[in-house]
Amino acid sequence: MSDSITFISRAAPYGENNSKLCMDIALAAAVFEQKINYVFLDDGVYQLLSNQSPEAIASKPVGAALEAFDLYGIENVYVDKNSLSSRNLTQQELVIKAKVADSDLIAELIQNSKSVINL
């Protein structure tokens, strides 16, 4: 079995805390040199919108934090195709480069992982 950890981030930013928890765990896993897949699913794709300005609601921009993925060596970043299209979003609107993945590919990532964190 593979030793990678797959993260499925399903929460919109700001309205609830799960997007941040998911990211924090992934960054910690990256520090400990784990192989990581990071998948944005459902409302999680809203984290990827550019031009977020949450300062007025006393939050840090999630989009900017996602740019840290590169520094941490998290390269396998995916965004669910159906989640994008059902929200009228396109890949061009996203703040980081994420590979567009269909359900079959995400199912395969899950199958080939040691464990899955789904928040």
Binding site: D3, I25, A28, A29, F32, Q34, K114, S115, I117
Partner: peptide, 13 residues
Amino acid sequence: AGLGQLVDASVVS
């Protein structure tokens, strides 16, 4: 303790 303990648990369990 820190999140390393969760990462460790995910790997070892």
